[in-house]
Design a protein around this nucleic acid. Structure first.
Length: 605
RNA sequence: GGGGCCGUAGCUCAACUGGUUAGAGCAUCGGACUGUCGAUCCGAAGGUUGAGGGUUCGAGUCCCUUCGGCCUCGCCA
């Protein structure tokens, strides 16, 4: 077998006359009857091979039979291309290999899709033949960035004295949070492991163990429906450190992010990254992960609305609701009445808004006029006040939602992002980072009539708010922080509770009884009683970081072997039925899908 | 669990209102061609229109069921 001496992206004009061997995949062949050209590809690049029938008839004959994606090795001499024959599209475009010997290492069936047009090809086919898809330079680039980022992260933490320690994949099921993936135990009948949703408790226990500084690039599992930016199986950069406060964690990790952006994209992120309180984020952007690439802040006009003759607004405010809106720069010119009343109204309706009120902004004789069917319900000075509050300009569009605060914010936040994108209010390739801080510790859950953790139950209240655990849980701030970029949460963490009494108190507020707490977290609470140091940490979504760095909106693009929305691997066909023997060993029995059973019962009736 | 979009040749798409033998480009196969680089030219082959059922004289097109993919609401401590 010919052994390669160089890769396909390596040779330059300086290498002329070298005798070399390349190996790779046939990207394309051009048979001129006489000369044959083959573009040879490996992960490093493409090099053109030339086969001349007069000088090397044997290699030429063989080259004529080669087809796309065959694996070949070619020995030859590096030659400069003639005048005007260079290919500026290739890094190796100034040279070509005049081949003396060709070896076919393997043939290939015709690929199931054209690799040149893969970006347009049905993703289902790409996933089914993932090995072909991953062969494409675009996909290899993403895998390479992913490798580079994990390498940077490991080096970064190593230098700071963090240890990478593995935690169990077969773990204990915990009640709250996402649905667990379960793994039946063979040795303990009827018992199950859960795949970890995150190594949260283990990393905290490592702090009790005196590890001091821990990190791990770790797979996590949450059995919830996937989305464009979410897979059931994903990877976190998981970190925990002892004797630290919020600023310590934030400082270390914004430097890590800055280093990644610098090394991968050569983009400077100014450190320290700005911070914003949770309250400001909700007030101004309606969401705890604001997209700061453009302004368009939400404004509350409840006071004006309450005084207006517009009954919908006034009555909602009277009932304790609010009216908030935004000013879409240039939206008045861009959007028709039908765009607003059909498309946009349907859009906000998806998020629970019952309507979308609007005012178009026009300038007449230097005066700002607000026009729409609801304008007549407002006094001129009220309209003036509204225009002033939004700093509305000619050609803008004001949009309002009235409801309880959570519904208003939930509807306006995505509308704002959509408008920002449609109105081109920011440039592609810009990154706006922000730390969101001062989260409340708890959030009232109206359906369950109890408090939920906003972050997770192990998050510490601020020192000054700790005493409110007994008196005023609703108004406790936590020591949590989220890193947000372009409206996407890429990381989040907190200083943890290291006192078992406080931890029990928090469980109690979350309506977790002592018995439950002992049964589910007993091992952890016990660990806290044996000299747990103050500690805190953070976790980053590696997949989302890679998405940002590679400019894709599809998480499947940054995962080598991703799953579909039904959690299936189209290449390997997992999940699949198993041998009844396997089930027997696990003491398990399957039953028909309960819906089918219900349906059958229904038919009988 | 809900909503939306989609499924026609290997791939990307077309086929007016239900009406002849379902077309095109690329890929494939055969042929021609000594400087191409998305080579070019000539020719050929390629289809259970995702599957099943229904309406109709007639279904890619309409209706029902079902399978699959994507987006999304819920969900994701």
């Amino acid at each position: 077998m010919l052994k390669r001496t160089h890769n396909c992206g390596q040779l330059r004009i300086e290498d002329v006359d070298k005798k070399i061997v390349l190996a790779g995949w046939v990207k394309s062949y051009r048979d001129h009857g006489g000369l044959v050209f083959i573009d040879l590809r490996d992960r490093e690049g493409i090099t053109q091979l030339v086969f001349n029938p007069e000088t090397q008839p044997k290699a030429h004959e063989l080259a004529r039979t080669a087809r796309d994606e065959w694996v070949i090795a070619a020995e030859g001499t590096v030659k400069p291309r003639g005048e005007g024959l260079e290919n500026p599209k290739l890094l190796t475009g100034q040279i070509e290999i005049v081949v003396s010997e060709l070896e076919v290492l393997n043939v290939s069936k015709t690929p199931p899709f054209e690799m040149e047009n893969a970006e347009k090809t049905n993703e289902e086919i790409r996933l089914t033949s993932r090995y072909i898809d991953l062969r494409r330079p675009q996909m290899q680039q993403k895998m390479k960035v992913r490798h580079q980022v994990t390498k940077i992260v490991r080096d970064y933490f190593d230098k700071l004295g963090f240890w990478e320690i593995e935690t169990p994949m077969l773990a204990k099921s915990t009640p709250e949070g996402a649905r667990d993936f379960l793994v039946p135990s063979r040795l303990v009948k009827n018992a199950f492991y859960a795949l970890p949703q995150s190594p949260q408790l283990f990393k905290q226990i490592l702090m009790v163990s005196g590890v001091d500084k821990y990190f791990q690039i770790v797979r996590c599992f949450r059995d919830e429906d996937p989305r464009a930016d979410r897979q059931a199986e994903f990877t976190q950069i998981d970190v925990e450190a002892s004797f630290v406060d919020c600023d310590d964690i934030i400082t270390v990790h914004e430097k890590m992010i800055a280093e990644i952006w610098k090394k991968i994209l050569n983009v400077d992120i100014s450190v320290p990254i700005r911070r914003m309180t949770y309250k400001d984020a909700i007030n101004d952007y309606g969401i705890d992960r604001p997209d700061l690439r453009f302004d368009m802040k939400l404004k509350d006009i409840s006071d004006i609305a309450a005084d207006s003759d517009f009954k919908v607004f006034a009555s909602i405010v009277k009932k304790g609701g609010i009216v908030k809106g935004l000013c879409a720069t240039g939206g008045g010119d861009k959007y028709s009445r039908s765009d607003i009343e059909k498309t946009m109204t349907a859009f906000v309706a998806d998020y629970g808004a019952k309507g979308l009120a609007w005012l178009k902004v026009k300038a007449e004789d230097g005066k700002i006029i607000l026009a729409s069917s609801i304008a007549k319900f407002f006094k001129p000075e009220q309209l003036e006040e509204i225009a002033k509050r939004f700093d509305a300009k000619d050609g803008d569009l004001l949009l309002f939602v009235a409801d309880i605060p959570s519904t208003v914010n939930k509807a306006l936040a995505p509308l704002r992002c959509r408008l920002g994108r449609e109105l081109n209010l920011y440039e592609e390739g810009v990154f706006e980072f922000v730390w969101v801080v001062d989260f409340p510790l708890f959030e009232w859950n109206e359906n369950e009539k109890r408090y939920d953790s906003l972050h997770h139950p192990f998050t510490s209240p601020t020192i000054e708010d700790t005493e409110k655990l007994d008196t005023d849980p609703a108004n406790i701030n936590s020591q949590a922080y989220d890193l947000v970029v372009n409206g996407s949460e890429v990381g989040g963490g907190s200083i943890r509770i290291h006192n078992s009494k406080i931890q029990r108190k928090v469980f109690k507020i979350l309506n977790i009884s002592d018995e439950q707490a002992t049964q589910q977290f007993g091992f952890f609470l016990k660990a806290l009683e044996y000299g747990a140091p103050p500690h805190g940490g953070i976790a980053f979504g590696l997949d989302r970081l890679i998405m940002l760095l590679t400019g894709t909106e599809n998480i499947r693009d940054v995962i080598a072997f991703p799953k579909t929305q039904r959690g299936q691997c189209l290449m390997s066909n997992a999940p699949s039925l198993v041998d009844p023997k396997q089930l027997e060993e696990l003491n398990l029995r399957t039953q028909k899908h309960s819906h089918q059973i219900e349906k059958k019962n229904g038919d009988k009736k």
